[in-house]
């Protein structure tokens, strides 16, 4: 075999960046499909669907006949599902190549870092979308079984959830490009999406500032779109006791603006993450 080795022009047959991107994405999807994380998420999805469906029946609560209203109960879990999905599949996507030393295998190959980055992002996005499609699909089937109908709003909600997933994953990739250890990266991704950004979105209205630019605030469109008509910003007064009142705004994200913000997060986080990944050195 060794003697028969022939000189092959390895340069000529090198695939394009796009082809290599697809290859990276394909094998990264395989990683997710064989991972315990996906299994964990599938179990979580099953639990959420099962509890949302069965608990009212077990408690003897009459379910609503309105498909949109019934679907809302399922949709209310989607934001947290996206956050967990983004944490699990994006939170250490880049840093793991360095920490687990698999970069020593991948990086000396004739493939650009940007190609690896985008390929990995596409695979993460694919898994998150798959997770959402399964969740919405099962939820829609249960809604149909219980109400005999369905609603187009659930499709819109799913598309918005996919956009939110894309933005959350991009944020995870950015954090993953900065950190040196997987644990820190996973923890920060989760707490950024689960606590830090929601806290900012909670505090800003106190200063009458609409947190339209906060990703998790924009993510609320996934649930609000199930409400008809779509809610609009409103101001409330809170009595302070001595005849004085304090105005308090309740803000709702608008759909178009939120989609634009999510798109912005995707572009900015991916551009920054890719820049950092390209500069990151494989040091022992």
């Amino acid at each position: 075999m060794m003697e028969a080795a022939s000189v092959v022009n390895n340069r000529e047959r090198l695939p394009s960046d796009l082809q290599q991107m697809v290859t990276v994405a394909k094998y990264d999807v395989l990683k997710h499909l064989r991972s315990k994380r996906l299994l964990g998420l599938v179990i979580l999805e099953a639990l959420l669907l099962g509890l949302t469906f069965a608990l009212p029946l077990l408690l003897g609560v009459d379910p609503t006949d309105d498909p949109a209203g019934y679907m809302s109960a399922f949709v209310s879990w989607v934001e947290i599902l996206v956050i967990i999905g983004a944490t699990m599949f994006a939170g250490d996507a880049i840093v793991s190549e360095f920490q687990s030393r698999t970069g020593y295998l991948l990086f000396p190959n004739p493939v650009k870092r940007s190609t690896i980055f985008v390929g990995k992002y596409l695979s993460t996005l694919g898994i998150i979308v798959l997770m959402l499609v399964v969740y919405y699909g099962v939820a829609a089937a249960l809604v149909f079984a219980m109400t005999g109908g369905g609603t187009l709003l659930s499709l819109y909600s799913m598309l918005l959830a996919c956009a939110y997933g894309a933005a959350a994953a991009a944020l995870g990739f950015l954090i993953s490009s900065v950190f040196k250890g997987s644990t820190g990266s996973l923890v920060l991704t989760f707490f950024t999406l689960f606590m830090i950004l929601p806290m900012i979105a909670q505090l800003l209205p106190a200063g009458s500032i609409k947190p339209w630019f906060v990703l998790t605030f924009c993510g609320h469109v996934i649930s609000y779109i199930m409400i008809s008509p779509y809610p609009t910003d409103l101001v409330d007064s809170i009595s302070l006791g001595n005849g004085e009142f304090m105005e308090y705004w309740t803000y709702y994200p608008d759909i178009g603006g939120s989609l634009a913000v999510m798109g912005g997060y995707v572009l900015i986080c991916l551009a920054l993450g890719m820049y950092l990944f390209r500069r990151k050195e494989m040091v022992s």
């Binding site: 094998y27 687990s100 698999t102």
Partner: peptide
């Protein structure tokens, strides 16, 4: 380079 780690799922 060094002792590379492999993807354990492959």
């Amino acid at each position: 380079v060094e002792t590379p780690e492999f993807y354990p799922y492959l």
